[in-house]
Design a protein around this nucleic acid. Structure first.
Lengths: 246, 246
DNA sequence: ACGGCGATTATGTATATACATATTGAAACG
DNA sequence: CGTTTCAATATGTATATACATAATCGCCGT
């Protein structure tokens, strides 16, 4: 610790990241309950064998993310999970997860190309039949499932999506940059997890979930319909605004 | 710059904060358009007469917030804003209900004037203690409960609310028109109904609910915190928006 | 011309250090 | 016994430094 060691000497990621994910894991898993005092900076310093600045930066970030609260002279404490803020912006889940300091991972569950049925057309707002792609995947924050994604892509609008596997990359990031969207509509509601959802998200059947559905258009053409399903505890949408004044 | 100078030597806030606000100001105002290369770290270092670490931390934070993009060897650039925060309308429940073609009714359940406790202050974002008014009421659509409202009013900001009974009129419509609000923040999440909520809304305990919390400010003063609790089946929020630019 | 390779450059991450500031707990005092 | 004061402590913010890493530019040889 006395000299400057090579950056990223350990295995994966930076030390900063490792501290972040270690601590938020402990909090998320419940090992450190709300109110629990987490180790002092100088203790983490010896635990991770690093300088206080490194620990400090990680803890400050957790504080800004709302996971912990810091009190001078007293230490840092796990906060009541009322303010696990995520922002209703672009709704890129990777960014949301990484803002929590957790490693992000995506895993495709299903992929199916088919001729649109009545429900597909309703979801997309299509009048005529055509090819659609159905993709289902799981977003992970660390080891835990963070959100289940169910997506319908209108292949008449985005034919090249038909050649994509979406095995490791979520369809959202793929579509952005390829298809300029001109309009979007969100629907937000609560739902009880059914068998399938509960299984995928590793929660109890019947547990409350937050559902965010988005429909996107590009120049009047329906592009995609996504449904994100979050376990209730893991997610709060935050929207801040000032009056529009007519 | 050669020695360690006293922290916060300048006027208000930290240097970190000043750099942050300066740069986001320039971006938000359009002075630095998307694609514009902002000064290099070493340039800002001389401009603000501070170390690179300080500048680096500020820029990293802006990057994490999505305002800028950083490229090694090339510098930092103002990003294209991908999307905007959703503009949820300030929803008036009477209008929602009447849009469904159902008769609307409001009924007050509880009303309590008290000195703010720690939780009240947290909800309202107050630092000092003071009088608050707690009002709980039910919104009906026809015969069925449509939403449960739990509201906290900061009597320091709106003293005349202390004389109101809110027996037949909900506090929301009363406040609007009386108190011009300058800013609001929504938090949206899912929740399982507890005993109290289930009883009020006439649903089963454990049933999923949509919770919308709103905090309102008027000229920097916290005015009110409301929580609307909807049975999952009865409600879907809709937000529609277009990208701010290409 | 053109493709590869090394030098340069800006950012990324870490260290050790210094001093500020808020809060707590205990000692000193009226 | 209550209050005031003070020192200890943990966090907050800044500095200077060191080395890593990625991307670009320009040189050079074929």
């Amino acid at each position: 610790m006395s000299t400057v060691e090579t950056t990223d000497a350990d295995g994966g990621g930076s030390l900063h990241q490792r501290i972040l994910s270690d601590i938020s894991e402990k909090i998320m898993s419940g090992a450190w309950a709300p109110g629990h005092r987490i180790p002092f900076e100088h203790e983490l310093t010896t635990e991770y064998n690093c300088s206080r600045m490194t620990v400090n930066k990680a803890l400050s970030q957790l504080a800004k993310a709302g996971l912990i609260e810091r009190r001078r002279r007293s230490g840092s404490f796990v906060r009541q999970p009322q303010s696990q803020a995520a922002v209703l912006e672009l709704h890129d889940i990777r960014i949301e997860v990484e803002a929590l300091g957790l490693p992000y991972r995506y895993e495709r569950l299903k992929r199916l190309k088919r001729r649109s049925n009545a429900e597909d057309r309703m979801l997309l707002g299509l009048s005529a039949a055509g090819s659609v792609l159905w993709v289902e995947g799981l977003h992970f924050a660390g080891e835990r499932p963070f959100a289940l994604e169910q997506r319908l892509i209108n292949l008449s609008a985005v034919p090249e999506a038909g050649d994509e596997e979406f095995r490791e990359i979520a369809a959202g990031p793929w579509l952005i940059g390829r298809v300029p969207w001109s309009e979007a509509e969100h629907r937000i509601r609560a739902m009880a997890a059914d068998e399938t959802v509960a299984d995928a998200l590793d929660i109890d059947p019947g547990a409350p979930c937050l559902v965010v559905e988005r429909r996107t258009w590009s120049a009047e053409h329906p592009v995609t319909h996504v449904r994100f399903i979050y376990p209730a505890e893991s997610h709060t949408l935050v929207a801040r605004f000032t009056p529009s004044q007519g």
